[in-house]
């Protein structure tokens, strides 16, 4: 019963989060004093050197409002917006690349972002936790404080600084990687695959470094606290070896809050990934967003942000549903 209600509660929260997220996405542009349709018409007007008649403009306005779901009152718009997203996953056409649908553009970019993000997060989390465990378990030794120092140095450095420093160090001073990455398109061959990996290494390293510091620090703190728990002392008195105590007693228990923390910090990690993609011109969601923001392509922006909210919420749900596998207390409650 305990497990079932845990899962039901978590899934309920998932839908509420999605609902609030989608509502905010819908409301934001409508609360702004700026109307995207005016922007589009202005752009078209300047391209046509002001030769458009006022009737043509009025006609265009009606068509554009229909295309971008802006006709009817706010409530009608809201219902049709939710319907379009939930049932047909339709965000309308892109303005810059008309008539390419936004959902196709996003679906092209999403695998890139997910691939980069998943790989680097898993590496950073595993590595950071292992280093943090060792630093925390042997926190009285000198070497442990050096490990912690690495964490302290890395943790407060923001993503964009790490990304720019990586470019400076590994592409400019030591030209191991290219200054601007190139990603081949079309049929996948082993050669192209190698090129993609090579070009993804720099943004990957940046993301791993960024996640690494926090994991060391928090795992170290958790391990120090857990080491002083009575059951660890009991295990020592019982004669359990150092290794057994570190892995089976301390690690298992210190890992649980780290899983929760990962689920909670996913939004932050995702932000970092988007930013890293923008700086490295990596062809994921981040780059799509940047191009759309610069070109005033609002449909693409709304589509990208909706997908971001859905992916982060889903990833959080998956992590939280895996939690009972790690923590038997929830299973047997």
């Amino acid at each position: 019963m305990g497990l079932l209600s845990f899962i039901a509660k978590r899934i309920g929260l998932y839908f509420v989060v999605l609902f609030i997220g989608l509502t905010i996405t819908f409301m934001l542009p409508r609360l702004m004093p700026i109307n995207p349709v005016d922007g589009y018409i202005g752009q078209l007007q300047s391209r046509a050197n002001g030769t458009l008649t006022s009737e043509a403009i009025a006609e265009m306005r009606v068509t554009l409002e229909q295309l971008y779901g802006l006709n009817g009152n706010v409530f009608v718009q809201y219902v049709s917006y939710l319907k379009r997203i939930v049932f047909s996953f339709d965000f309308g056409p892109s303005f810059t690349y008309y008539p390419q649908p936004v959902s196709a553009m996003i679906m092209n970019a999403l695998p890139w972002t997910l691939g980069l993000l998943l790989t680097s997060t898993v590496i950073a989390w595993t590595l950071g936790n292992l280093v943090g465990l060792v630093a925390g378990y042997f926190h009285k030794k000198k070497a442990a404080s050096i490990l912690e120092f690495v964490g302290i140095l890395l943790y407060p450095i923001p993503y964009y600084i790490l990304a720019v420093s990586m470019l400076l160090l590994l592409a400019y001073i030591f030209p191991i990687f290219p200054l601007s990455a190139t990603f081949p398109v079309g049929q996948m061959t082993p050669e192209k695959f190698g090129m993609i990996i090579y070009n993804s290494l720099l943004p990957g390293i940046t993301l791993v470094l960024a996640g690494f510091g926090w994991n060391i620090l928090s795992m170290k703190a958790l391990t120090v606290a857990t080491t002083e728990e009575p059951y660890v002392v009991y295990a020592r008195l019982k004669g359990a070896s150092n290794w057994t105590r570190m892995t089976r007693y301390v690690f298992r228990n210190a890992l649980l809050p780290q899983v929760t923390a990962l689920a909670l910090s996913l939004g932050m990690v995702f932000n970092g990934a988007l930013l890293t993609e923008m700086i490295f011109s990596y062809p994921g969601l981040g780059l799509v967003m940047r191009t759309a923001a610069n070109g005033g392509d609002y449909n693409v922006l709304y589509g990208a942000i909706t997908i971001s909210i859905i992916s982060v919420a889903t990833a959080g749900l998956v992590i939280d549903l895996l939690y009972p596998l790690l923590d038997p207390r929830i299973r047997h409650k």
């Binding site: 989060v17 995702f270 988007l274 923001a293």
Partner: peptide, 23 residues
């Protein structure tokens, strides 16, 4: 707390990018 948790888990940067592009 539902609102707080939603705000925490929502990726902030995409929202800020939209706002930034609009204003």
């Amino acid at each position: 707390m539902l609102f707080v948790d939603t705000f925490i888990t929502m990726p902030l940067l995409p929202i800020l990018i939209i706002l930034g592009a609009l204003i």
